[in-house]
Write a protein that binds this DNA or RNA. Structure first.
Length: 98
DNA sequence: GCCATGGCTAGTA
DNA sequence: GCCATGGCTAGTA
C-alpha cells in the first residue's frame, strides 16, 4: 500500500452518504495532480477489501463509468438506494456532487 | 501495454 | 470522438 493509495482511501471513505465525486476530484483531494486513473484502478482492485463506497464515484460529466453488465446496473441501484437519482440519459445531476 | 479519466475539437442539426 | 496522461501489471529474458 503506497502513501498515495492510503490518501485516496481516506478521501473515498469521507464521501458523504448520498453524494458523489468524480475520479479526478478524488485524486485532487488526495493531493494527486493527474491521478484519476489511479483512483479508478484502486476502486477496481480494492473496493471489497477496504469496504469503499465505490458506487459514489462517477465521471466528471455525471455519467457512470461502468459498462452495462459490468456493474452499471448495480451502481445505479446502490445510488437509488441512497436517494441519488440517475436520469434517463444515465447521468447524475450536479447537485449530488460534493 | 493497459485503462472504472478528462478536456478539447470537429461535425451535425 | 480523439489523444495526452501516469501508475500499475503482465509477460519476457
Amino acid at each position: 500500500m503506497t502513501e498515495s493509495s492510503e490518501r485516496i482511501v481516506t478521501v473515498l471513505k469521507a464521501i458523504p452518504y448520498a453524494r458523489v465525486m468524480s475520479y479526478g476530484a478524488v485524486a485532487s483531494a488526495a493531493g494527486l495532480r493527474n491521478g484519476a486513473r489511479q483512483v479508478a484502478r484502486l476502486l477496481h482492485s480494492s473496493s471489497d477489501t477496504w469496504k469503499l463506497p465505490w458506487h459514489r464515484v462517477i465521471k466528471a460529466n455525471g455519467c457512470i463509468a461502468l459498462p452495462s453488465g459490468g456493474g452499471l446496473e448495480i451502481q445505479i441501484a446502490l445510488l437509488h438506494q441512497e436517494g441519488v437519482e440517475v436520469n434517463a440519459e444515465g447521468r447524475v445531476d450536479r447537485k449530488y456532487f460534493v
